[in-house]
């Protein structure tokens, strides 16, 4: 039986629903208390300053609606990401050098986490409410999207570079060259991309900010772990069964 696209994408979607549910529970039980602390602080600061900050006057949604929206956002995020992930996986599967679909899926999920979550987090870390300046949100969004796009393009080019090196140097030299190139490209981008225009108000405790940042990165790590493991396991169940009937390669 030939492995088809729909077999792959269905498994990606199932893994994404599992990842989305884990992420929603994590958001509700772990991250929401931190967001509440930040909003409490934001409101206390706004009352003192009584500035024209978007949060305080006539909120569009109540806090519990925003909690629901946040949970929905994580599930929509997981499902959308899995469509991209599954399609990319189906496209590059035969080019990922690994022994099984499980290892291939873990490789791709690790790269995806590194490029789309860890790398942008190093330059533009997540912030709780009460930190961002509404006037700079568009500028920060452009910076963030460009950095993620850069990370993805760089990853593709590094793969091409690896393929180019494959026929020219031995395995050891290829790995050293690839690691050096990755450090140079990603490290260079972290240095050269402009700093965020926001400065963090001194009233916001560093402990709160860092608790939130670690929780945000941890959440994304969990999402990619569940997606990668779940998808890899589901794919292995198909491909291992598929090859069982054929004699083992000599």
């Amino acid at each position: 039986m030939e492995l088809t696209y729909s077999v792959v994408i269905k498994r990606a979607l199932v893994a994404a629903v599992a990842a989305g549910i884990c992420m929603a529970l994590y958001a509700f039980f772990v991250v929401e208390p931190t967001i509440d602390d930040a909003i409490e602080l934001e409101e206390a600061t706004a009352q003192v300053a009584s500035g024209d900050h978007g949060h305080e006057d006539e909120p569009l949604f109540t806090r519990s609606q925003q909690v629901g929206g946040g949970v929905l956002a994580t599930v929509l995020f997981a499902v959308s990401v899995s469509v991209v992930f599954g399609t990319v996986y189906a496209t590059v599967r035969h080019r990922i050098p690994a022994v099984s679909d499980f290892t291939r899926a873990l490789w791709l999920a690790t790269v995806a986490f590194g490029v789309t979550a860890l790398f942008p987090m190093l330059k533009y870390p997540a912030n709780p409410p009460a930190v961002g300046d509404p006037d700079t949100v568009n500028e920060r969004t452009v910076q963030y999207v460009l950095l993620v796009a850069f990370g993805i393009v760089a990853a593709v080019l590094l793969c091409k570079f690896s393929g180019w090196l494959r026929t020219r140097v031995d395995f050891d030299r290829r790995i050293v060259a690839l690691v050096a190139a990755a450090v140079l490209v990603y490290g260079g981008a972290l240095l050269l991309f402009p700093a965020s225009p926001d400065s963090i108000a001194p009233e916001v405790p560093a402990g709160l900010i860092w608790r939130f940042r670690i929780q945000s990165l941890g959440g994304l790590a969990m999402l990619w772990t569940v997606l990668g493991l779940g998808f890899g396991w589901l794919m292995d169940r198909v491909t291992v069964r598929e090859t069982e009937g054929t004699p083992a390669p000599v």
Partner: peptide
């Protein structure tokens, strides 16, 4: 505003 908490959690720039 509706997706507010999710945006913060996923590390995307927000106000």
């Amino acid at each position: 505003e509706f997706f507010h908490d999710g945006r913060h959690l996923l590390g995307v720039p927000c106000h």
